[in-house]
Design a protein around this nucleic acid. Structure first.
Lengths: 250, 250
DNA sequence: CGCAGTTTTGATTCATCTCAATTTGTGTGG
DNA sequence: CCACACAAATTGAGATGAATCAAAACTGCG
């Protein structure tokens, strides 16, 4: 059983700032939880979000079986989430970047069911969940927004199932690159030129492929002039070509 | 592209009862949305749930791109949910039975993103979502329960990703049978003797396999004395043996 | 009874995995 | 600053599990 090890060892206690996070001042407010709230409502959220947490590369924001008490908004950095089953199989369920919400898996049984691991030094806003629920009874638009965020996660998961259930290796990797590209672009980064934060093995786990297959497929894309790969640096030369790969589903 | 066709054609208008559903009287209340609510709170839910919908086999409870207005609690029967992507690929994302909640995918964009198709004549309680949100601001335990139901769906989806990403055909089918068995058992049905409501192709779509592989694997399990298969009738002779298949993950 | 849809089974092909060797990159300590 | 050691990525050759193509058998319905 191949275990994906974090780059530095696991679960050392992360630093918790007493710096109050202020959604109203945050550049991510259009992407993140506050989306669609009025200025007045935003102030209530500011009061809610107690602290931020700095997570070094390789550390866990939370781990499976840990008691659930909060969800997290990524303020900066990059995470992966992964589940491990009874048999020890490991599956990366997603990669998350700034503005995305982590930890909603923990609500159902008051404990987390997956690990959230920082793939680079990162910072996350702690959103105490019972306080969020309390506040959301006061602010219907906040309540609705929470539902939307959770629903979006369900829809995203369906997309991953589609990928894993129906696509071939090339299609999976093309979909992965396009998805990453699009999310980076919507955060103001270059859509066609970025640095992968994860190893081949993590990409493979996410896509249901072995790391060698991921590597080979990168090379193939490069030979075909679709992308340029240099280790973790990716340049997308022909986004339309990548899309075409997904259309030509055999 | 293989399309999974419903047994009878699609989307004829289903009958909506004006029969009021009463959660407080429903035998599924320990499984379904009302779980954990007091009698007094239950009455409010009774008031909320406007009507039931009868869905004949092959009909859609809702379809992708339809406007979202309600979630549904299955009162009786059996459903599949499936997504279709731009390229026309089809993926069954789940099979749902009595007491389970359907339609939460629709919250994120106010329209459904998948089809919910009845695999046998079924009945579902309509839960108007904006009314549910309104009521849940009054009843914190209801609000929390909604979050739990959505979170449980996320966790379930992670399990499917694990299955699709890491398991071999035999493991997938064993996991599928054990899951079905366990859910039937928790509804008071025999755990080891049941009728599959879905075709091999639908099982295959859910498990990321071709229908021939599903069929062959059933036959193999039968040869090994783990199960008895006769078309859609399944008898599990050796549940421990099925579990063992999942442990022997190569 | 016959037909259409579903399932089973067989033979073959192909995509991906596995195992193994090499190359490249990264961080550490002298 | 360089050399070394270790981790990650690439590449190759061969094995294998599942897909594909094809045909036959079964089931249920009109």
């Amino acid at each position: 059983m191949t275990q994906i090890k974090p780059q530095t060892q696991g679960n050392t206690t992360p630093i918790t700032h007493s710096l109050r996070a202020a959604c109203s001042q945050c550049s991510l407010r259009e992407l993140c939880l506050p989306l669609g709230l009025s200025d007045g409502e935003l102030e209530h959220i500011d009061a809610l979000i107690g602290a931020r947490k700095r997570i070094k590369r390789g550390q866990h924001l939370y781990s499976a079986n840990e008691a659930f008490s909060a969800i997290y908004a990524i303020r900066s950095g990059f995470f992966k989430t992964c589940v491990t089953d009874e048999e020890g199989r490991d599956q990366v369920t997603g990669f998350q970047m700034a503005g995305e919400i982590l930890g909603m898996d923990g609500i159902s049984n008051d404990k987390h069911t997956c690990d959230a691991v920082a793939l680079e030094d990162s910072e996350a806003c702690i959103i105490p969940f019972n306080e969020l629920e309390r506040l959301s009874t006061q602010i219907p638009s906040l309540q609705h927004h929470i539902h939307k965020v959770m629903s979006r996660e369900i829809v995203r998961d369906h997309g991953v199932m589609m990928l894993l259930g129906t696509m071939r290796a090339e299609e999976r990797l093309a979909a992965f690159l396009l998805n990453l590209s699009q999310r980076l672009a919507s955060r103001g980064y270059a859509a066609g030129d970025f640095h992968l934060r994860m190893m081949r093995e993590e990409i493979g786990s996410y896509l249901g492929l072995k790391l060698e297959t991921v590597s080979r497929t990168f090379s193939k894309f490069q030979e075909e002039g679709l992308i340029q790969v240099q280790q973790r640096h990716i340049r997308i030369s022909d986004p339309a070509g990548l899309k075409r790969i997904m259309e030509s589903c055999s």
